[in-house]
Design a protein around this nucleic acid. Sequence first.
DNA 1: CATAACTACTTAACATGTTAAATATCAAAA
DNA 2: TTTTGATATTTAACATGTTAAGTAGTTATG
Lengths: 142, 142
Amino acid sequence: MLQSTRRSLPMSLLRAREVVMAQFRPILAQHGVSEQQWRVIRVLGEQSPLDATELAERASILAPSLTRIIKALEERSLITRGKVEADGRRVMLSIAPKGQVLISEVSPESSAIYDDVQRRIGQERYEQLLDLLEGLIDLEKK
Amino acid sequence: MLQSTRRSLPMSLLRAREVVMAQFRPILAQHGVSEQQWRVIRVLGEQSPLDATELAERASILAPSLTRIIKALEERSLITRGKVEADGRRVMLSIAPKGQVLISEVSPESSAIYDDVQRRIGQERYEQLLDLLEGLIDLEKK
DNA sequence: CATAACTACTTAACATGTTAAATATCAAAA
DNA sequence: TTTTGATATTTAACATGTTAAGTAGTTATG
């Protein structure tokens, strides 16, 4: 039996993400960062420094995209880039002061939206959804 | 409180989608179509003809992307494009014979993967996940 | 009928996704 | 030590995402 395009898992995941991100995009746009740039900054805000591979993994961004994003963010002094003594191939990325300022500016607005979405869905359903998604994500590792 | 980048809804939705699509991409690649092109073809396979706006909505593709995709698919004779008598602005798209052949080739493999994912997650959890996603998507309309 | 407002689609410009290939460096084996 | 293979990142090429602006056709209003 053919899967309907309406109730298909990939499509539903795409649309759901679209609905959620539509809430965030205006805020990020106001601060001049893209969704992906914001992910990179936020990950580095949680832990710095990180090498590019780790960062790519945690921000769910492919290496070639990350290369471009790093370049852009470094030029705006939102992050800094350093080399590793022991391994000449690797690049270490850190959050820069300007980046930390950005995080402190965006985070409150971001949190407000998260809370709003969570409230509109319902606390219980929200957690349930995250659990189910986590289970789906873990399929990859099996 | 800062949202962790690990257990955030947008990230989880992105990663979950990535896990699922990773299963499909090889098949689509074998048949020479991108994920988005396949969505367009499949929607037209369910209903033809459709005008571009309807098609964009159902395939969750933005108008500018759709313009490019239509061009590519038309050049490969997978879909056809026609005009509307009553309204000179609109474009009507239909599935072409070659497109139908493609659908008949890809669908079985696609279904097998859907079934596999569904089985690995569990029927009940699978339905539950779709329901929760649907609820999230409906937030947009409120 | 003329104009203004709206609609459907396209084009433009730039960022990112995606795959493949290239570079440089490191690590292991001969 | 040289070669081979693996790893980390970058570059390239093309498709798509995204926002803004442009074009053509339509509808409403006067």
